[in-house]
């Protein structure tokens, strides 16, 4: 089953596989996940003046007046600020804006909703940030194409795996929207960076952090437990961290 939902200023797509025929109709579970995404948009949107985050940013309410998940998200953001040495920021344009983490977090939770309902094999794509659950078919891994940021019509890489989060940050995502908080200027050095790991909340935030770091991101991601990165630099070169194994034809890498 497929479903596409326009929410949070982008496109979310659901791909529910049912290889063993256990679920005749995943529709209700997908509807629940979609409702969740709209709830997140209502609470966290910085474009909606009445959202809790907008009101919190203006000082009209305090954190205790917000839905409980706002505190959860801000806590997550603050932990990534520490881990990323400040390259991830809660105030990217001088105002409270946890958006760089919220989308991945929302997809992660949407995927969890589907899993809890018994739809173990699915893929949720939130504007290019992807959460894979289970496998697309018996004995097969999911395959995620990484759009090449510099060469239109090409993929830069294919990442395959099961139960995996893949988040990409780069200039192709929304233009030069990621700012190096230490310089206040658009991040340079990388055209895009893709972070792969078990949790999309962190993968999304790490991808944003890594893009802001530029060349230094490689060593930084190497030091992150459980997360790997693949990047295309501004000059078109690529690099990957050591945990992402290149696969040669005829060889199986584990």
């Amino acid at each position: 089953m497929r479903h596409i939902e326009h929410v949070m200023g982008t496109v979310f797509s659901f791909d529910i596989r049912d290889s063993d025929g256990r679920h005749s109709d995943p529709g209700p579970y997908v509807a629940e996940a979609v409702a969740w995404l709209h709830h997140v948009d209502e609470v966290f949107s910085t474009y909606k003046p009445d959202s809790a985050v907008s009101r919190l940013s203006r000082g009209e309410i305090t954190l205790t007046g917000c839905p409980a998940e706002v505190a959860d998200v801000l806590r997550l953001c603050e932990s990534v600020v520490l881990v990323s040495h400040g390259y991830f920021t809660l105030h990217p344009r001088g105002r409270l804006d946890p958006s760089a983490l919220v989308k991945g977090w929302a997809v992660e939770r949407a995927s969890a909703i589907l899993r809890a309902a018994g739809a173990a094999d699915h893929c949720v794509n939130g504007g290019g940030d992807v959460r894979l659950s289970g496998s697309p078919a018996p004995g097969r891994s999911w395959r995620v194409g990484v759009a090449h940021p510099l060469r239109p019509g090409e993929l830069a890489a294919v990442v395959s795996g099961t139960d995996l989060a893949v988040a990409t940050s780069g200039t192709a995502e929304r233009g030069a929207h990621v700012v190096d908080p230490h310089t206040g200027r658009p991040a340079a050095g990388l055209a895009s960076v893709t972070v792969v790991g078990p949790d999309l909340t962190l993968a999304d935030a790490y991808a944003t952090s890594a893009f802001a770091m530029g060349a230094a991101a490689r060593d930084w991601v190497e030091g992150l437990h459980g997360y790997e990165a693949f990047a295309v630099t501004s000059s078109g070169a690529t690099w990957r961290t050591s945990g992402l194994h290149p696969r040669s034809r005829g060889l199986t890498t584990t």
């Binding site: 326009h6 200023g9 982008t10 496109v11 797509s13 791909d15 893929c123 794509n125 504007g127 290019g128 940030d129 992807v130 894979l132 697309p136 999911w142 395959r143 995620v144 194409g145 990484v146 759009a147 090449h148 940021p149 239109p152 019509g153 090409e154 993929l155 294919v158 990442v159 893949v166 988040a167 990409t168 780069g170 192709a172 995502e173 929304r174 895009s192 893709t194």
Partner: peptide, 25 residues
């Protein structure tokens, strides 16, 4: 990139694409 995604995803045998745009909407 989205042209390719819409038309040729099967050629690359991929299930999904990471890296997206506002315009993609």
């Amino acid at each position: 990139i989205l042209d390719e995604e819409a038309l040729s995803a099967r050629s690359a045998q991929i299930d999904v694409v990471s890296g997206a745009t506002y315009t993609s909407d």
